[in-house]
Computed example of a mutant assay.
Amino acid sequence: MAVFTAVSLDDLSQWIKQFPLGRALALQGISSGIDNSNFFLTTERGEFVLTIFENLGIKQLPFYVQLMRHLAERGIPVPAPVPNADGELVVTLQGKPAIIVSRLSGASQMDPQPVHCAEVGRMLARMHLAGQDFEMTQPNLRGLDWVGATAPQVLPFLSEAEAALLRTEVAFQSEFAATAGYAALARGPVHADLFRNNVMFEGERLTGCFDFYFAGVDTWLFDVAVTVNDWCIDLATGALDEARVRALLDAYHGARPFTPEERTAWQPLLRAAALRFWLSRLYDFHLPRAAELLTPHDPTHFERILRERIERTAPELPV
């Protein structure tokens, strides 16, 4: 989340009349993240979040927006999109598609303990199960095809050691994705970006998760790997904390048991999740876009995580 497109209360004064929210009273840009323009929006009817999409095409948006609505209707704590008077969820603002969603209560838990990780694991399993009957489909747009297309763009900026690691891991993941074991993995809609700053807590109680704009259909195990690689690590080294890993995996397994195929694929998928975010951060760091508020992420963080996953075996999935 960042602010690429500036918006003022005056800009909203007429636009917001199409929504059942009353007048816009306050608007504050959100600086975290780097993909869309996001604002906390206060209206006469309450607190909301306004998102202006900077990169996603209009044909891609229905998947994300309808997925959030689908999950919210099934009791998953996610932001609920607000329709306008015509029932539309995505409406143009400043020449770009925009959406208003409900604002979750609580705050991000940036120092998670096992109890928080268990809450996240349980919620993630419930989310996967709730998405099974979601009829729309869209591939993970940061999946292996994207990896193959993006890696050559960042290679010229890398050191010899970094380039060797990137080439080797892309080849490893391509080979693994061609196996029968990978093809047998359970699939469905995934969040694909369930980091600490995308989940809200009040104390030890999880109140919701948000930022579904990297969602797509992929293996559920990839979603678990992305989540473990953020929630269950020592940030300084990228090493996994076994107590937090066990808490998250056991809670997930209690709601949606892991399959034998997933247990076999666990170590490679942890590497795939690390590669995806190392590559995206390399791209954003070396080929940045202009933004009014921009917080670029350090690519070396996920390089450390990827090397850790290659060199050390992670705790296994529960049986």
Rank of each mutant, 00 (worst) to 15 (best):
L25M: 13
A180V: 11
C209A: 14
W220T: 07
P189L: 04
R276H: 10
L25Q: 14
S8R: 13
Q66D: 15
G75W: 12
T43P: 12
N198V: 08
P79H: 09
D211T: 06
R167W: 09
Y213H: 10
G216C: 13
L269G: 03
E169P: 01
P268T: 05
P83T: 04
T237I: 03
G95D: 09
E73H: 00
R142T: 10
Q60L: 11
F39H: 08
F258S: 03
S105I: 11
F214I: 07
S32G: 04
M68A: 10
R263N: 04
E169M: 06
A26F: 02
F285K: 03
A215I: 05
S159T: 14
Q109N: 06
R309L: 05
C209N: 13
H286Q: 10
P152I: 08
D211Y: 08
P97W: 01
L21T: 13
E261V: 12
A161D: 15
R256G: 00
P81Q: 04
L206K: 05
R142A: 08
A107V: 12
Q109F: 00
H191F: 08
F277T: 06
R23L: 06
E303Q: 15
G22S: 12
H297V: 05
I52S: 09
I16M: 08
L249W: 01
Q267S: 07
F258M: 07
L93M: 12
R263I: 00
R312N: 09
R307S: 08
A184L: 07
R126L: 12
P20I: 07
M127V: 02
T51K: 11
E119R: 09
F176K: 07
L155T: 14
I52M: 11
D145I: 12
R289K: 15
P318N: 00
E308H: 10
F19H: 01
V7K: 02
D284K: 08
L89P: 03
F4A: 15
G46K: 10
F157E: 14
L279A: 01
F210G: 00
I310P: 05
R187Y: 03
E162H: 01
G22I: 08
